[in-house]
């Protein structure tokens, strides 16, 4: 396996602009999708943890199941929505990075919602009486519980990041793997595999893995620090 590692290293060392562009795009698409999913999923998951309404159980089951949504299906749905023949065709978003962000947001959202619900539900069981006593209603409790659950929630956000950065099915369909425009690490790996350039494909895989590893290490370190610091 010296070959692919050497290739990976020389690829990075060369600072090849096309590669840097691909890495940059991958990170931008996935991180933006994670941010969007958090902006929507954290409050929604917390609301789902605290709210009581008929059909709540069904909603929870659906979101849990959607965590296993195949990326290709998510991609296909977004593709049909954004296609010129679809309802949002006039936005001309198909085959753009924005379309990829939307598809990945859709993929991560169920993970963020389900994990948030579970974390916040547990916290609420512990905090409910105290918060009510201090004068916080359910609505007001949401940001408090999210903030107090932040270390556990980080795990869910990381899981979402992992899913988005690893998937190829959705971004391939809605992005089109256009060179220099919508080509990401994973679609580039798919392309190089199809070209029989297995060495290059593995090298790209090593780079992707290294990036993921680095981000996870940073997040884990931050979590450990916060745990020690905040109890």
């Amino acid at each position: 396996m010296g070959g692919p590692f050497a290739t990976a290293f020389s690829l990075i060392a060369s600072g090849d602009p096309a590669l840097m562009q691909i890495i940059g795009l991958s990170l931008r698409v996935t991180l933006t999708a994670v941010l969007m999913a958090c902006a929507v999923g954290l409050p929604l998951g917390a609301a789902l943890a605290l709210a009581r309404f008929p059909g709540r159980g069904a909603v929870i089951v659906v979101f849990n199941a959607l965590m296993g949504l195949p990326p290709v299906v998510a991609g296909l749905i977004v593709y049909l929505m954004l296609s010129r023949s679809g309802p949002f065709g006039s936005l001309a978003l198909l085959f753009t990075p924005t379309a990829m962000i939307i598809a990945q947001t859709l993929l991560i959202l169920p993970i963020v919602i389900s994990l948030t619900r579970s974390v916040v539900e547990d916290l609420w069981a512990e905090y409910r009486e105290q918060l009510l006593s201090l004068g916080a209603g359910r609505l007001r409790a949401v940001p408090t519980l999210l903030w107090d659950g932040r270390v556990s929630l980080l795990t869910g956000v990381l899981a979402g990041f992992g899913r988005a950065s690893a998937e190829v099915g959705a971004v391939l369909i809605v992005g089109g793997n256009i060179a220099g425009h919508t080509r990401t690490m994973t679609t580039a790996i798919t392309l190089e595999t199809a070209r029989g350039q297995l060495g290059l494909a593995v090298a790209l895989g090593i780079i992707l893995l290294t990036l993921t590893l680095t981000l996870n290490a940073i997040a884990w370190g931050a979590g450990q620090w916060a745990r020690g610091r905040l109890g």
Partner: peptide, 11 residues
């Protein structure tokens, strides 16, 4: 939260 949402949109 608002900041992170806003920065997402900004991205």
């Amino acid at each position: 939260f608002i900041l992170s949402a806003a920065s997402g949109l900004a991205l």
